[in-house]
Amino acid sequence: MSATILVRDLTRVFRLGDVEVHALRGISLSIERGEFVAIMGTSGSGKSTLMNVLGCLDQPSSGEYLLEGTAVSRLGAERLADIRNEKIGFVFQGFNLLPRTSALENVELPLLYDRRRRIADPRGSATSALQRVGLGDRLDHEPNQLSGGQQQRVAIARALVTRPAIILADEPTGNLDSRTTLEVLSVLQQLNDEGMTIVVVTHENEVAAYAGRVVELRDGRVLRDFPVEGRRHAATDLSQIYGGER
């Protein structure tokens, strides 16, 4: 079976005037369909940069990136847009919701660009995506009327509404308390059980414990790449810790 994500010798160099910042210095990585990968590393190690490349938001300086067998780096802007729309759900480190726009409309946004009309009922799908992240009662709230955790969950709903093959989440639990963190992780694990490939950036070991595999970066290189022993199950933990209150 071919890898969903395959990168070889990926580098990304930022040029700021005369200074060159090497954010990625040769990353090789293969992620199979249905994996749940946690990317870890210190601040500035290149996690977000890697995610942006994997999410087709940024182009590598050199190296190869095959997404489901397609050499993404050779595609034009329009085809890349299609790939972002159909195959990838991206959750940003800083939410990136449209201001003055309801949660429902934010989640519907990707479906506005669903050219092949893969999703028959945009409104219904957006509603159930929000229900799935526990925001069924916040459909008409605008981002500034939602807490940080709620905004994060709207962003997750927006990522999953197109039923993408891959969800890339950059610190999806960075702003959440432990209970909401567990709820978000349980949603991600459910999606993973349904066959979605999930890549999550985190710097918390507790979060990484819910993934199947950890890739640790340092200084733009892969430092370690290992499977998680004794993987935890978020739904079980939720009902054990908060069981009675649900």
Binding site: D82, R84, Y113
Partner: peptide, 13 residues
């Protein structure tokens, strides 16, 4: 930023 968000979720140029 709005343009960036739209492009990120799959808006074509």
């Amino acid at each position: 930023r709005e343009i960036g968000i739209r492009l990120a979720v799959g808006a074509r140029p």
